[in-house]
């Protein structure tokens, strides 16, 4: 009821508040003891008139002696306090200051902190920023790892898994090469190999591991050296629809590397590695072999490739020289390529 009569006037508001008994102390000098949070909240709330109009439900009067007294008077639209406590602007300002001093101090402190953070963000000194965020981020990560190890492991697996796999594959290859180097050749019959291993002090477990390392030849391309055209292709994993293009591209890569990095030299591109897959390349005078393999090849495998290419050139030199893109008879070529697929 009294609520509905309020006007947009701070003095009136204050008077109304006084009438509600709560802030009576504010206007009874010298007992001015303001700044209770309750008063601040009331002032803040009451100062916002935007949502209030005549349609608002009447405020339920406080249960207080004054309120009861007011009610008993019948229908006084305005409490007596409304007319009896007008405040000047200066007094109002002073009142505001007294009421809001703690809040203003807090806001000033927060503004200073925000400015400091903004300066750090705007600063070009990334070191300073890293130093600021490092402890927080480290703590967040540590907490996240403690809370949900599975989620973190799952998120990191694509990155770490590949690196670990590569490192393990490399370590195994190194081990295999170490054993092979000590043995010189591992294509001896097994009893002889074992005897030699013992004589050369190779650990039996290392030697056994070496013998068990997985290895498979996936594809074999016989490529015409000059044109890059595919002479023949064999696959252990099914048909490859783009074998002719792959053969050409391997030839182009070899040419590109040679012309770009080593023009006029006799070197050759011997290997391309992609993850677990490797492409070993061996050149003959007319045709070259490109073998796609996975795993650790047995020692002497590259020598075997060279031997096969050499034998092929000796046996089919005329056909190879005449090759201009017309298919060569499979029966001519296959005997030289098939054994490589079965190593």
């Amino acid at each position: 009821m009294a609520y509905q009569t309020l006007e947009r006037d701070n003095n009136t508001l204050l008077a109304w508040l006084l009438a509600q008994e709560i802030p009576l102390n504010l206007v009874a000098p010298p007992q001015v003891t303001p700044t209770p949070d309750l008063t601040v909240a009331l002032l803040t709330e009451a100062l916002d008139f935007s949502g209030l109009d005549a349609s608002c439900p009447p405020l339920k009067p406080q249960s207080s002696p004054q309120a009861e007294g007011l009610a008993s008077l019948g229908e006084p639209e305005r409490p007596a306090a409304l007319e009896t406590f007008p405040l000047s602007s200066a007094e109002m300002e002073k009142l505001r200051e007294l009421v809001l001093i703690a809040e203003r101090q807090r806001i000033a402190k927060l503004e200073a902190q925000v400015s400091q953070l903004q300066r750090q963000l705007d600063s070009d000194d990334s070191e300073e920023m890293i130093a600021s965020f490092k402890p927080v981020i480290a703590e967040i990560i540590a907490a996240r790892v403690r809370e949900s190890q599975d989620d973190v492991a799952e998120a990191l697996y694509p990155v770490i898994g590949k690196s670990v796999r590569r490192a393990v594959a490399q370590a195994i290859r190194d081990l295999a090469r170490g054993v092979d180097a000590a043995m010189r050749r591992s294509l001896y019959p097994q009893p002889v190999r074992k005897l030699m291993q013992r004589m050369r002090g190779i650990d039996a477990e290392d030697a056994a591991l070496r013998d068990l390392l997985p290895f498979q030849v996936h594809e074999i391309f016989l490529i015409h050296q000059e044109s890059g055209l595919l002479i023949h292709h064999l696959s252990a994993v099914g048909t490859l629809s783009d074998a002719d293009l792959i053969g050409g591209m391997l030839s182009a890569i070899r040419s590109y590397v040679q012309e770009s990095f080593a023009p006029g030299t006799e070197g050759t591109l011997e290997e391309i590695r992609y993850g677990d897959l490797r492409i070993m390349m061996v050149e003959g005078s007319i045709a070259s072999l490109a073998v796609v393999l996975q795993g650790t090849e047995p020692a002497g495998f590259q020598s075997l490739l060279l031997e096969q290419v050499s034998t092929l050139h000796n046996a089919c030199g005329r056909d190879l020289r005449a090759f201009d893109g017309n298919p060569l008879s499979a029966s001519t070529i296959l005997p030289f390529l098939k054994p490589l697929l079965e190593v």
Binding site: H224, E226, S227, G228, L229, A252, S255, Y256, Q258, E259
Partner: peptide, 8 residues
């Protein structure tokens, strides 16, 4: 690059 043209 001359090697690209070989065998064409």
């Amino acid at each position: 690059k001359r090697t690209y043209l070989g065998g064409a």
